[in-house]
């Protein structure tokens, strides 16, 4: 399976297209406006958690958006090196944007 990346906020088609195809053995990196999807206690965060996929949030973008201290507990914060490490592990990437 590919590594999924999402850089659009909930409400955008990219979010719904992505989450409809996310399964428990998938990994998703939230970047850009995508980080808003991991805001704790929101409907978007519940859907992400319910997918069972592993959710990563790009640190720089979470800090810039002001969500770094308000993330859903299931999300793991990664830096740029961590992002690259994920792409080493997953052979392909699907960019939702």
């Amino acid at each position: 399976m590919p590594l999924h990346t999402l850089n659009k906020a909930p409400g955008h088609n990219a979010f719904s297209d992505c989450i409809e195809r996310l399964a428990a053995d998938d990994a998703l990196v939230l970047l850009g406006d995508g980080v808003y999807a991991a805001l704790a206690t929101t409907a978007a965060a519940s859907r992400l958690a319910a997918s069972g996929a592993t959710i990563y949030v790009l640190r720089t973008d979470a800090l810039a958006a002001g969500v770094a201290t308000r993330l859903m507990s299931e999300a793991t914060v990664i830096d740029d090196a961590g992002f690259v490490a994920l792409t080493e592990h997953w052979p392909q990437q699907m960019a939702w944007h």
Binding site: G32, F83, E88
Partner: peptide, 26 residues
């Protein structure tokens, strides 16, 4: 890279990713 350098910071994110790719020895 499909992102314009002026629309949000997607282009900067991509450039940082690129730096990290090199830093990890790829």
């Amino acid at each position: 890279v499909l992102a314009a350098p002026t629309s949000g910071h997607a282009s900067l994110t991509a450039a940082r990713f690129a730096q990290a790719v090199v830093a990890r020895g790829h």
